[in-house]
Design a binder for these strands. Sequence first.
DNA 1: ACCTGAACACCGTTCAAGT
DNA 2: ACCTGAACACCGTTCAAGT
Lengths: 202, 202
Amino acid sequence: MARRVDHSHEELGEMILSAACELVEAGGSSALTARKVANTIGYSPGTIYNIFNNLDDLILRLNGRTLERLYLHLPRPDPDKSVENNFDGLLRGYLEFVEQNRNLWRILFDHRPSTEEELPEWYNDKVSKLLGLIDRVIEPHAPDIHQNELREISAALWAGVHGIISLADSRKLEVVSTAAPLDLCRLLVRSFLSGLTNTVKS
Amino acid sequence: MARRVDHSHEELGEMILSAACELVEAGGSSALTARKVANTIGYSPGTIYNIFNNLDDLILRLNGRTLERLYLHLPRPDPDKSVENNFDGLLRGYLEFVEQNRNLWRILFDHRPSTEEELPEWYNDKVSKLLGLIDRVIEPHAPDIHQNELREISAALWAGVHGIISLADSRKLEVVSTAAPLDLCRLLVRSFLSGLTNTVKS
DNA sequence: ACCTGAACACCGTTCAAGT
DNA sequence: ACCTGAACACCGTTCAAGT
């Protein structure tokens, strides 16, 4: 019908992502549809596809923002504190974020990269930045460690914690334990870190 | 159109679940639709809803079967073997199952219980039976442990391993480590078990 | 009693046609 | 050049009407 110069390409992208964010926060991932986004910003469905390749692409950008916000929400590791203290800070920060942004957090991990293609670099960078926080907690604990080993340790620990929180979120741990997710995470982290020195002989 | 006594209520349930299983194996969760299931078994869409409450209910039953099959696929812990050996057996069995049944495994964990209602007892029993395998591996390692603590340890360890495998599956660990999931799991399990004795003073 | 299949209220995505 | 909105090919779910 019309050519509208009300909003630039970039502005439209912003508006779409904001609308998507609101819709997910309010109604979970099933509330995020191209039609609803279009409706929210007062454009037609087709407009979404002028800016994003498809819904998957849109979700990937949204998840990028969530990663960014998570990074800003987590406390910075303090070299003067103990490893356990620092890790506990990250843990509590992460759980707090999950609680406050449950639906955004869910869509962050529910989303599976569509095909065999790699995730874009800007996305991997954001993930890497987050893992860097864990590196910085563990590094002083094992100063002579190889960079590769450090990354494996961070990855294993982070993935382990994530597993507990994500299974707790889908209520698949209720059968098996009444313990709070935070306590299970602490059990995992403490034992893992305590056992690390015996296992990795650096 | 017709009353068909070709198949009993139970037979229809079987046929539907088999068809659902095939569809998921072949095309992932997005290939599982009521219409396709109906088509596969030669009935109308409405028939599905005579047997199951809705698609969620159908998926829950399908997941029950997957849990059953996973239990049968895993090796039984051997009291004569070491904890590490036994756990490695479970680990390799689990990874093998995931590889051979990727789409069924994905739908098992993607599925989030719809409302606030509890999971049915028959489902929780199947999960519990699986966790029991881990209990039996750890128990001889710490014979004087409380039942509750044992369950927490099993849960934390299982969830941790699950986290690694599930993040690896969605390629969210590639950025951070080139290590194979099995190796990351071993790192987690070994350090955790090694550190356990220092952490839990039973 | 059992099963149908049309109907309702939705989807993602495309693309010829308008301004 | 930009945006539309109708169109296509799908969804889950229901329920009056058939046998």
